[in-house]
Amino acid sequence: MTEFEIASSLEEALALVAEGYRPIAGGTDLVVAARTGRAPLPGRLVSIERLDELSGIEPTTEGLLIGAVVTHARLMRTQSVIDDFTALADASALVGSPSTRNVGTIGGNVMNASPAMDTGAPLVVLNAEIVLRSTRGERRVAAADFWAGPGRTVAEPDELCVALAIPNQPDGSASAYVRLEYRRAMEIAVVGAAARVDLDGRGRIIGASVALTAVAPTIVAVDGATEVLAGRSLDPATLTDIADAASRKATPISDLRASDTYRRHCVGVMARRAVEAAFGRATGDPIAVPVNRSTGIGAAR
C-alpha cells in the first residue's frame, strides 16, 4: 500500500524526497503507468502540485523562472511565454488535450524524460537550465546536457526539479516548435523540431539553434545550425541544408508509429519548417501559437 504525503512546504518536500519519496504532481505519467501496468506506483509519494514555491512564472533580470508545477495550460496562455519564448508555448499547446494540459506540468514533462517530449526541444534551443534542489543545495543543468536516455536524467535521486530558468533571448530572436502528428489531440510526436533564429538589425541571420524530438534516445541538438544558416537567406538551398543536417543527426527507431527511414526524412522536414516559422516570427510575421494549428504544417487535418 502506498505511503502518501501532501507537502506543505518545499523544505518538507525536499526532506521527504531525500528519504526516498517520489514526487507526484499532475499524475498523467506516473499514475497512468501504474494503472496500465507499465511501472508500479512508487511505494512512497509526496504530492507537490500545491506548493506556491513551485507555482510561479517570474521574470528575473536574467530571464524567466518557471516553477516546476506550472501546467501546460498555464504556459500556453502566459503572454510573456508566447511573446518571448514562443517555441515553448507552441509545445505546451500541443501536449495531450485540454484535460491533461490542466494537470500536466513542465517539471513533470522534463523529469519523465521521454524522447518524444514536446517541451524538450524548445528548452534546448532557448538555452534553458533545469533547476534542481535537494537538502544538499541547488544546482542548474543545461537542458542540452540533462537527459541521459529514455526515462533517464542526470538528476540524483534526492534532487527535485524546482524550476526551469530560461535566459532572456537577444533582440531580433524568435523561436518555433513544430511536430509531425497523425491526430490533433492526445498525440505523441512522431518527430518534432524546435528552432531559434537570431537576426541582426538588418534582418540577416547571425545565430541559430535547432533541436529534435523523437529521433534519438533523448532530445538532441543539431550540430552547427548557426554555421548552416548564418549570413544566408532562407532560399531552397539553405532550407535543404538545414533539413539534411537534422536528418544526419537523427538516429531514430522503427516502431508502430513510424519507420526509422520515415522519421529520419520527416525530422528534416520539421526542422526546415520550424526554421521558417521562427524566421517568420523574427521578421514580424504574426504566426499564432501553436504553429501546428495556425499554419497546419506538421498537423493532422
Partner: peptide
C-alpha cells in the same frame, strides 16, 4: 473526465488523495 475546481481533468490519472 470530472471537473476539479471547475477545470476538466481525467480522473484516471489523478490520485483521489490529491483531490483532498
Amino acid at each position: 473526465m470530472v471537473l476539479i475546481d471547475g477545470q476538466p481533468v481525467n480522473s484516471c490519472s489523478l490520485l483521489a488523495a490529491q483531490a483532498e
